[in-house]
Design a binder for these strands. Structure first.
Lengths: 200, 200
DNA sequence: GTGTCCTTTGACCGGTTGGTCAAAAGGTTG
DNA sequence: CAACCTTTTGACCAACCGGTCAAAGGACAC
């Protein structure tokens, strides 16, 4: 809508700062002052751009839902089944590597009961998942993919890939300081896993 | 130590209440009043048994670390490799079903940077994991298990099983109201997955 | 330059937070 | 009963919380 240049840039700065803070402290654990400090703004100035703390959080979550579902949307029923799944796995893992804050924001929200994003799970996520699960089921039925529960297959892709963002601290603590980037190993492991799981 | 009968029971009640609240709101999102109300105690009375909010949280986390690692400790290098892994998977999944609050407490802590439990990851978790990873590597080397990265294999077991506790809301939203217990399906899926992944 | 609108700020507010304290209530032992 | 220790409580506190507001400061078109 009718936005000033200043508004556009400041709102972007605030979202960036808020993502930082919300993703590491959760909604309740975050204070407006923290966000303001991170955005290098005074608190009233921040509240000039967003009406409330909750508005910032909601804004972030809504933006996120879209980008979060993008890789799944691109799963193409006309493509090669195994390649499509592996591409999806690789993209989700890349998102964990490149957007760990977004992953943690989402994880925090779900973990704490999804009070704010709950409805979108039923109205946005479920229909998309049901659709793609049907595609996968057809692939399996046609003998192009080894049979298993499509919904749980998708759950397993989410959990395995997001784990490397959400539990990053634990992964690094276990692998030790000599491994400074777990993602190449992780990708190799996940490709192996889903290939063995699904190839006929 | 020298504990009264009243002290023992009250401390147990407080821990139970605190687990409820901490696991659904995170550390910062939890108030002492909330815990006190859940424990049916007045706030000063609660603080008579624990010196601070943080003390309760730390106490919970320390207790948790032990029970959390139990299933992994029982992985027996003299047993049948695949059965041992599958037993471990089933036990971890059962813990997600029966102790979802503990799982979420742990997830909250790791997700938010593991500021309180961080050291224990290196001193308690890593040595145990390294030891068991060595056992698994030997099984693979002996041709009794299909080869893959043992550390990432353990990560995958954790992420897949804990997902059903930590992301319970999302799982139920996606599966819809007609599925009232996702765990039987989940167990079947995970057994299939690790069997295909590991059996020679 | 001047008027207008957008942006920023310091001071402030009512409510909540984690935590203290002195005193009261309760239990146990002689 | 009396002395002693454990447990419970209401009143209270300083710090912090999310959010408001009037007024000052800038940007920009004319």
């Amino acid at each position: 809508m009718g936005q000033t240049r200043i508004q556009r840039t400041k709102i972007a700065v605030i979202c960036e700062a808020a993502l930082d803070v919300f993703s590491t402290h959760g909604y309740r654990g975050t204070t407006v002052d923290q966000i303001a400090r991170a955005a290098e703004l005074s608190k009233p100035n921040l509240l000039y751009y967003f009406p409330s703390k909750e508005a910032i959080h909601t804004h972030l979550l809504n933006q996120l839902m879209d980008t979060w579902l993008d890789p799944l949307r691109e799963l193409d029923h006309t493509g090669d089944p195994l390649s499509e799944i592996l591409t999806y796995v690789r993209r989700k893992l890349a998102m964990s590597r490149d957007m760990p804050r977004e992953s943690r924001l989402f994880a925090n929200e779900i973990l704490q009961g999804a009070e704010r994003i709950g409805p979108a799970l039923s109205t946005e996520l479920k229909p998309l998942v049901d659709d793609k699960a049907r595609v996968i089921a057809e692939w399996m039925h046609a003998g192009r993919l080894r049979a298993s529960d499509p919904h749980h297959l998708l759950f397993s892709i989410w959990s395995l890939t997001q784990h490397y963002a959400d539990f990053d601290v634990q992964v690094r603590a276990v692998l030790g300081p000599e491994v400074d980037d777990p993602f190449p190993e992780a990708e190799a492991y996940l490709v192996t896993m889903f290939t063995r799981m699904l190839s006929v």
